[in-house]
Design a binder for these strands. Structure first.
Lengths: 168, 168
DNA sequence: CTCATTTGTTTTAAGTATAAAGTATATTGC
DNA sequence: GCAATATACTTTATACTTAAAACAAATGAG
């Protein structure tokens, strides 16, 4: 086949190229982290100042907003990519504050169904509106016609990483 | 000048376009967050399993590795984009474990200089090597010739967000 | 049926994160 | 000088986060 001796198609790569790719990958990772940290920090600050609310709590409400009939508690850690133990106190407080309800399932008493209350839904809508406009404010300077392109690239990156994690 | 009545150059935008841009911005943010969470979680897991070490501690060492003569403690929160109070216990433990030293400055007794020890440097190099190869493993599926392009876009995004934060 | 295993959730221990208040040292205005 | 302010860092209170252990209910093998 048409593969030259000195340059195999994928691996191993030459030491120099490998090092250059290492650096490029590290730079990409650092930029990714910096962007996320920057935006997340600003959104967190505003949530706190405007609504005395936290992002993890908002994230839970955002999931429930799309599920009028409620959600099995166990779905939340999967969707939010956090540990189950982490959610327990967050859900506790959301119940305490009247934003959501938690009811044991009749079919399986281990399972709990969480569901947003009317006030929860109202509060969420208000916060979601601000959240959207904050994001718009922060990203306003980025060319609108390149938003989708960048999103696709990140989608691809996510797929690549997920595959790499599933492999071994 | 050549600006048509019905389409001002930047703002206000029509309601429909504005909504579409909102959604595109939100999608971008969610992808960004998902990518970072995914990679960060995996790196954290491996740091823990392989070295019984955490990423924040690694990040501190990474900063000090580039500064043979040490760093003013106050520089760390700025570079790592975390709060100063957060670093106190992390630096405490790194000192305790012998990875770094913390010495008060003679010129200004409020200031402390942190500096990596020989063992700290050795440990860091070992971990940094693994860190690089883990990242390479995770990102291997992403086309090498597009790494820099994506990095530039994220750089631009970061600049845009930073500007938006400085404005008001 | 009964015991072992699995599954859904909570608890615990340790670490990370912030904001806000506190402490100690420097600097500045007068 | 010396009081007011600013700076560097730590402490405190609160919240998020994970991993691992614990617990309770359901399922499955015999």
């Amino acid at each position: 086949m048409a593969v030259a001796k000195e340059s195999p198609p994928v691996s191993p790569k030459s030491g120099v190229d490998q090092e250059a790719e290492y650096r490029a990958q590290t730079r990409l990772w650092l930029r990714l982290l910096a962007c996320t940290t920057l935006i997340e920090g600003e959104l967190r600050r505003r949530f706190r100042e405007e609504f005395d609310f936290t992002m993890p709590r908002f994230d839970v409400l955002a999931q429930l907003d799309r599920e009028p009939s409620g959600l099995v508690l166990g779905e939340l850690p999967k969707r939010l990519m956090v540990s189950a133990g982490n959610l327990t106190p967050i859900v506790d407080r959301l119940v305490e504050d009247g934003y959501i309800t938690r009811t044991p399932s009749n079919l399986d008493r281990r399972v709990q169904i969480v569901c947003m209350t009317v006030e929860g839904r109202k509060a969420f809508r208000r916060m979601a509106k601000s959240h959207g406009s904050w994001l718009a404010e922060l990203l306003a300077g980025f060319p609108a016609d390149r938003l989708d392109g960048l999103t696709s690239e990140l989608d691809e990156l996510k797929g690549v990483v997920r595959d790499a994690m599933q492999k071994p």
